[in-house]
C-alpha cells in the first residue's frame, strides 16, 4: 500500500522520468497518451512547479505562456537536452515554444500535432490522419491490437481515478486529489492501476468547497489556497477531472475512436463552446453544493483571457460567487492572493 508523501512521489517520479530514455513528454491535454503507450514509450506530462524566469527571458519574450516558459526555464536550468516531446498547436504560445525547443536542441524525437478547432466528421478524419502519422513515427507501423490494449488500460486508469474522486469527493483534500491526478499523468499506467492508495490523513476538514476554473496552474497553487481555507471539489482545467471520461472503443478502428474522443470530449477553453461549458459548470456547481468558483487566470493565456468575459457574464447571471486570481505561474503574489481569498471567503459567509 502506498503511504509515503504523495507530493514527494510526484517529484521523484518526474525526476525519474526525465532520466528515462523511453519517456515521451507532452504539455497539452489533446496529446493521445494511448498512442505513445502503444508505441512502447512512456507518456509523461510535464508537470512543473513555479520557477523564477532567470534564463528563459533571453530566448522568449515576457508575454508568452508562463507555464511553457517555465518548461523552457526548467530545461535551461537543468541543462536538459534531447528529450522526446509531442507539441501541439493548442495555442499560439504552444506553436512558438515548439520552435524554441527545436532550436535549443531540447528535443530528440518530436511531433507537432495539429488540432482542428472544429469537430465535424471531416475534422475527426483529419485528426485521425494526424494521429496515424504520429503512431507511425513512434512505432514504425500501425499496431491496432496494441493500441486497443493501451486504450483499455488508460480507460481503467481514468475509471479508477474517477471512482476515487467521486467516492471520496466530499472529504478528500484537494491537494491530495491534485497530486493523485498528477501521478496518473506521470506514472506507468499499469503501475498506476495497481497502486494501492492509503487514504488515511487525506480527509479534509475544510467545509468551503469550490470549483476551480483554469487552463494550467502551478503545483503549489492548490496547496496554498487550501492553506487559506479553500477546498477544490472540482478541477476544471486542461488536465482536470473532465479528462476522466472514457474512450468508447471501436476495436476495428481505434484511431477513429481516439480522434473522436479527443476532439469531442469536454476540452480546454480553446474550444469555442461556451454554452456547453457553462452548462456543465453550473450543473456541477449545483450538484456538488459548492460555495463559489475560483478562476486562476494564467497571465498571457489567450484562450482563457478571451473566455473569462463570457464566463463572468454567465456566473453573474446565475448569481454564482466567483473570484478571479491572476498569476504568472511564479506565485510571486502570494500576499495578494491571500488578501483576495480572505475577502472572498468573508463575502460568501
Amino acid at each position: 500500500m502506498y503511504s509515503c508523501n504523495i507530493k514527494d512521489l510526484c517529484e521523484e517520479m518526474l525526476i525519474k522520468k526525465i532520466k528515462d530514455e523511453k519517456s515521451f513528454f507532452y504539455f497539452c491535454s489533446y496529446v493521445p497518451v494511448e498512442i505513445i503507450h502503444a508505441s512502447s514509450y512512456k507518456p509523461v506530462r510535464f508537470i512543473l512547479d513555479s520557477l523564477q524566469f532567470l534564463h528563459s527571458d533571453e530566448v522568449i519574450p515576457k508575454y508568452i505562456c508562463p507555464y511553457l516558459k517555465t518548461a523552457v526555464e526548467f530545461f535551461i536550468k537543468n541543462n536538459l537536452k534531447e528529450k522526446n516531446i509531442i507539441f501541439t498547436d493548442g495555442c499560439d504560445s504552444s506553436r512558438r515554444i515548439f520552435e524554441v525547443f527545436k532550436e535549443l536542441n531540447f528535443t530528440k524525437k518530436y511531433f507537432y500535432l495539429k488540432i482542428p478547432f472544429n469537430d465535424n466528421h471531416q475534422d475527426i478524419l483529419f485528426f485521425k490522419s494526424e494521429l496515424q502519422k504520429l503512431f507511425i513515427l513512434l512505432n514504425g507501423k500501425l499496431d491496432l491490437e496494441k493500441l486497443n490494449e493501451s486504450i483499455n488500460l488508460y480507460n481503467l486508469g481514468r475509471k479508477k481515478l474517477y471512482q476515487i474522486f467521486n467516492n471520496h469527493s466530499q472529504n478528500l483534500k484537494s491537494s491530495f486529489k491534485f497530486y493523485l491526478n498528477s501521478l496518473f499523468q506521470l506514472m506507468d499506467i499499469k503501475d498506476f492501476i495497481n497502486l494501492d492508495i492509503d487514504f488515511t490523513n487525506q480527509k479534509s476538514e475544510i467545509q468551503n468547497k469550490f470549483y476551480l476554473f483554469s487552463t494550467v496552474y502551478p503545483l503549489n497553487f492548490v496547496e496554498y489556497i487550501e492553506s487559506l481555507g479553500i477546498n477544490i471539489a472540482y478541477d476544471d482545467s486542461c488536465f482536470g477531472e473532465k479528462n476522466l471520461s472514457l474512450i468508447e472503443l471501436n476495436n476495428d478502428d481505434p484511431l477513429t475512436s481516439i480522434s473522436e474522443y479527443y476532439l469531442k470530449k469536454e476540452g480546454c477553453v480553446r474550444k469555442r463552446e461556451i454554452d456547453k461549458k457553462i452548462e456543465n459548470l453550473i450543473q456541477r456547481y449545483k450538484n456538488k453544493n459548492l460555495k463559489g468558483v475560483i478562476i486562476y487566470n494564467l497571465k498571457y493565456c489567450d484562450p482563457l483571457i478571451f473566455f473569462i468575459p463570457m464566463i463572468k457574464e454567465k456566473l453573474n447571471e446565475e448569481k454564482i460567487p466567483h473570484l478571479l486570481i491572476e498569476d504568472d505561474f511564479t506565485m510571486n503574489i502570494k500576499g495578494q492572493i491571500r488578501t483576495r481569498i480572505e475577502a472572498f471567503l468573508e463575502m460568501i459567509k
Partner: peptide, 19 residues
Amino acid sequence: FNQWGCRQGAGSSYLLRKK
C-alpha cells in the same frame, strides 16, 4: 517589430534575430 502580446509573431523572434 514585436507587437506587444503577440505570441505568434514575437514568440520566436529572439531566436530569429540570433539566426
